[in-house]
Design a protein around this nucleic acid. Structure first.
Length: 199
DNA sequence: CGGCCGATCCACT
DNA sequence: GTGGATCGGCCGA
């Protein structure tokens, strides 16, 4: 059971909120530039497809960029934000239904020396908090958009045996989506409560 | 084409 | 607490 790559059946399920919640505590691994790095997922946000005003795919907006989300679950949707940051999402649900889960934070595990050189400073417990920091620590960019998380060799997610009880999860509205009007208040953000779980 | 702005981060005050 | 960085996506003309 330990260190097993999460299978396609985990991602292709229709309940994006469930997947966002269950990704907490899993290990996000990357093998980039010949360097292995990993971290425990501690914060996620669900993006509920064409009915979600906060989603890039709201209103069934199919563009070159959003096309990645329309593919079958189990690949990465990585895009450039603010011209500087690459944000990493997991595509979920079956093909043609553009659901995704944004990974907003990881707890650094493997390869902290590599991570340190990537960000040009010491890696501490907070170094992976923030969606732009996740990709930076892992050496991923929007050029890695569409990477296969199941059969791929560059980035994947592993089961590690860690159990996160509901009592250790904070559920709140998503960050930075004020433009989404009423949908900006939806409780689609999940994070491990650091006061309950010590990693 | 031109212009606006974003699922952010960091340095600085 | 605030503002600058930095550029692709998207929309309207």
């Amino acid at each position: 059971m330990k260190h097993k790559v999460i299978p396609e059946s985990f991602y292709t399920r229709p309940e994006v909120l469930t997947i966002a919640r269950e990704l907490l505590g899993k290990t996000l691994v990357s093998y980039s530039n010949g360097q292995l790095t990993s971290g425990i997922i501690i914060e996620t946000e669900a993006y509920n497809g064409i009915v979600d005003k906060a989603s890039h795919a709201y209103g069934d907006r199919r563009t070159k960029r959003t096309e990645t989300m329309y593919k079958s679950g189990g690949i990465a949707y990585i895009y450039l934000c603010y011209g500087i940051h690459s944000l990493f999402n997991v595509v979920t649900n079956i093909a043609e239904i553009p659901h995704a889960v944004l990974i907003r934070g990881i707890y650094p595990k493997t390869g902290q020396t590599v991570m340190s050189s990537r960000i040009g400073r010491e890696v501490n417990n907070k170094a992976g908090v923030g969606p732009g920091r996740v990709t930076r620590l892992l050496g991923l960019t929007y050029a890695d958009d569409g990477e296969d998380l199941i059969h791929g060799k560059k980035v994947w997610i592993e089961e590690n045996g860690l159990i996160i009880p509901d009592s250790a999860i904070n559920v709140t509205p998503r960050i930075g989506v004020a433009y989404a009007a009423e949908d900006s208040f939806l409780p689609y953000r999940f994070q491990i409560d650091a006061k309950v779980i010590r990693l």
